[in-house]
Amino acid sequence: MPTTTLHIRRGGPGEAPRHDVFELSFEPGESVLDALRRLRIGTDPTLAFRYACLNANACKECMMLLDGKVIYACTARLEARDMRLDPLPNKTLLRDLATVIAPPDERLD
């Protein structure tokens, strides 16, 4: 099985940005979201990211940056290389890869 190396931006607003590095093997065809969910179960449950529909690409919650480009984590495929994941830059950061993406009139404030 091929191996990918994920560099994942961690921390909340105001914290010094850092990237944690995770190596994991994958089956060809698997998505970035598959990897993130597996990391939570097997390695670090505190990793924060958003998703709802798992892989139907219906909820549009899983947007983030892969190597600086906006992707859906549930449709971007894992590759056998270094992959860098960051939160959306133009949205308020919640924590790690999770940002505030709800329309303004559907938020608490």
Binding site: E27, G29, N55, A56, N57, A58, Y72, C74
Partner: peptide, 9 residues
């Protein structure tokens, strides 16, 4: 199978 992404199962 095979892994199918971007679609409802």
């Amino acid at each position: 199978a095979p892994r199918l992404i971007g679609m409802d199962p």
